[in-house]
Amino acid sequence: MSRPLILGACLSAGFVAMALLSLVWTPHDHTLLDIPGKLQTPGGTHLLGTDHLGRDILSMVMVGTRTSIAVALVALVIGLCLGVPLGLAAAARKGSWLDETIMRGNDIIFAFPLLVMAILITAVFGPSAVNAIIAFGLFNIPVFARVTRGAALPLWEREFILAARVAGKHAQRISVEHILPNVMNLLIVQSTIQFALGIQVEAALSFVGLGVQPPTPSLGRMLADAQTLVTLAPHLAVVPGVAIILIVLGLNLLGDGLRDALDPRLRRRLA
């Protein structure tokens, strides 16, 4: 176990634990307004201070983390559930019309920058957390399709796959039995990356008003509220910003650490 891996795992687990904890307990009610007690600096009864409406920032960060994680996680699952089977199918029938269609479709989605896709979707269906999830989920599909196909293609040339074909197994069964387990490492690593990206995307979309809508707190929404007040009370921007950085940092370190730990070539070198 490398140090970055441990650090990343601890950070990620810490934030997930905090998000789960917010379901049953927060230091204060995050919806409770307290106008006289607004814009308190960190310390005292409100550990991280209060916002412009006097709400407890620590409680909001806990609940906001939960929202951000939920958005990123659902979009990740969409990407995995649709992208991986598409990638496996494309690799199994390399060069066929199926492969061509999947890859060209991917290229088209890729040509839409994530934010532009979100804008297009919100322009039509209106801004909401669900639409932010759909936009990022759509973005995740070609990412996973590409990663899966790219990793699966060289495997199809490997002799153990030929041996399985000689043993009379169908492409579908080979994909599930032999290909998927061998691309799993890569998918795990890519998942941590897309998860981290999801946290950032939620923050960005909510920041410009295309994501999570009030009154639901999210890290991005807290930053949007802080924007006009940043000169008066910098901690309003600093606290959620640092939370985002730490979650993303933790997930990225976890991903890098896992990649090194799971790579059999590296493992052999260490052994």
């Binding site: 490997r158 153990f160 041996a163 399985a164 032999h178 387990p181």
Partner: peptide, 13 residues
């Protein structure tokens, strides 16, 4: 069939 590559012809898992 028996293939050439003694390292590539088995699923390592």
């Amino acid at each position: 069939v028996v293939f050439q590559d003694p390292f590539g012809s088995f699923n390592p898992r």
